[in-house]
Nucleic acid binder design. Sequence first.
DNA 1: TTAATGATGTTCT
DNA 2: GAACATCATTAAG
Length: 186
Amino acid sequence: MIPFEGDALALAPRLIGVTLLVDGVGGIIVETEAYRRDDPASHSFSGPTPRNAAMFGPAFRAYVYRSYGLHWCFNIVAERHGAVLIRALAPLVGLERMAARRGGPAFLCAGPGRLTQALAITGALDGAPLDRPPFEWRERDGVPDIVAGPRIGITKAVEAPWRFGLCGSPFLSRRFPGTSPGYPRR
DNA sequence: TTAATGATGTTCT
DNA sequence: GAACATCATTAAG
């Protein structure tokens, strides 16, 4: 069962608290960002290109792209040619394999590049359907306490509060402005 | 604690 | 040629 519906802005907070496993390794999603079609910060803003083809295909597939030449970033394609960037997980299953892939036990999934490294997500999964292996999903239990704030690392539409996080989680890539200090440690 | 920088490859102008 | 949805490391305050 896939708990997916709606456009990027609806889906991004909806995914907080949902468990994601890739090939049996993963954890609870604690941080996401929404990118909409008419959003200057979105890869889909200027229309279809070879890189963003997945965003213009069927919804609820993977969109994986290379970031800064070194890292992979994992998104869920949403309705209406948007996407949700998965930025952080609370590691739960397969900690050993994650640490081995990461080269150490620190910050296993705190950030989009670290997360894809820990889960072994690469461009090979670009466009892949999410409702079958290696992906596995577990619905959340009730509605978690969700915080919102500006997105990270962009230069356009900087103010839009379309970054979502699990309130107080120590597994965030960065703290949300205005929340209590101490999380996360870097 | 924050700030600066290099690594690295693809995309788009 | 410039920009880029990042990260690890190093240097400074």
